[in-house]
């Protein structure tokens, strides 16, 4: 397979994809509807552990979708999502214990989101303005993860350090009305609703003017700039929004899991987010979501069945997917469905 053939193949498929855009969107939404329906049914057929663990995996899914936003849509690969997830979780943990009542909870979530968005925004603008991009930006996001982990480990007065932090299940209430996440099934449906909400919001965003410009920047940054778009600003906004979503997922994850530790910012966790999205398909929010859910479930099964070989199998699977299905499993499936639909 030569270099040139690859390029033309890429361009051709892009054209086809663009021509088919509305239909592709429908397929993705249809599949998502089915997935959400299945998830909705789980509590009535699954056991108590599934009801306990699936919300955490759905939040991993939200985290993965936040990566789809910057990577799939904006072409900015980030290894730093784990750090923003961690900021969200710690902010909730710290503020919900220090500020009493529902104010502490809301404050925790808000501060986490705002802090993540601000850190991501400031850093991204700082670097995008200087045209730092591609692999170099990947390295910077890796640095964000590492620094996040180091700070979380060392600021032990605040975060509990390497020991981690315990967060009890919170109540999300406004003047007495709201949800109490203490019950596994309540929090299950709450997280499911949140996941659906983020999915819908991101799908809408990708079809908005902002989303289209982002794709334009991904395809050709110089051209977008020549057309008068403030490329650095838009990339910064995307990165910042993605960090905010990651932080929100992190906050809810913290209270769902009951425990957070700096390992959530380390390279292994941050690279596994990339892995979920790559395997699922980075061009589709559904790809990230399914990738996170499915891999977390599979990992867990392999972990209990063959603990010593699970990582090897995951690596082999990952390699096979990256080589074999470049658009990811979900992405390939969606395109295949469209192709079948076209032929008839």
């Amino acid at each position: 397979m030569s270099f040139k053939v690859e390029v033309s193949h890429e361009t051709a498929s892009r054209k086809v994809v663009r021509a088919r855009r509305p239909r592709r969107g429908n397929t993705e939404d249809l599949l998502a509807t089915v997935l959400f329906a299945v998830l909705f049914a789980v509590p009535s057929v699954g056991d108590s552990y599934q009801v306990f663990i699936l919300p955490q995996y759905m939040l991993f899914g939200v985290l993965a979708m936040s990566l789809c936003l910057v990577w799939g849509l904006g072409g900015i690969l980030s290894f730093g999502q784990g750090a923003f997830f961690l900021i969200g979780a710690y902010a909730l943990g710290i503020l919900s214990t220090r500020v009493s009542g529902s104010l502490g909870v809301w404050l925790g979530i808000a501060v986490g989101i705002a802090l993540s968005a601000a850190v991501a925004g400031a850093l991204a603008y700082f670097l995008f303005r200087a045209r730092v991009r591609g692999s170099y930006f990947v390295l910077v996001t890796l640095a964000i993860s590492t620094i996040g982990g180091v700070i979380a480990t060392s600021a032990s007065d605040l975060t509990g350090g390497f020991n981690g932090m315990f967060i009890s299940r919170v109540q999300l209430t406004v003047s007495g009305w709201g949800v109490d996440l203490a019950s596994d099934s309540t929090s299950y449906y709450f997280v499911l609703a949140l996941t659906i909400g983020v999915y819908v919001m991101l799908r809408w965003l990708s079809r908005s003017a902002f989303g289209r410009v982002l794709v334009g920047i991904r395809e050709n940054e110089e051209r977008a700039e020549a057309l008068g778009y403030d490329v650095a600003l838009r990339k910064t906004l995307a990165f910042s929004l993605s960090a905010a979503i990651a932080a929100m997922a992190g906050a809810i994850y913290g209270t769902e899991a009951g425990f957070v530790s700096p390992s959530l910012a380390d390279v292994v966790f941050s690279t596994s987010i990339v892995l979920w999205v790559a395997i699922g398909g980075r061009d589709f929010f559904l790809g990230g979501l399914v990738g996170a859910l499915a891999i977390s479930l599979v990992s867990e099964k392999l972990n209990s069945a063959i603990p010593e070989y699970w990582q090897l199998l995951l690596g082999v699977l990952f390699l096979a997917v990256v080589i074999g299905f470049r658009r990811g499993i979900v992405g390939s499936a969606i395109l295949a469905i469209d192709r079948v639909g076209d032929r008839r």
């Binding site: 690969l77 990582q311 690596g315 082999v316 990952f318 390699l319």
Partner: peptide, 18 residues
């Protein structure tokens, strides 16, 4: 470049385990 990054990460996963 992103794909090579993923592939070499797969190499890391596999090699470390082997």
């Amino acid at each position: 470049p992103f794909e090579t990054l993923l592939i070499t990460y797969a190499f890391y996963l596999i090699a470390t385990q082997v």
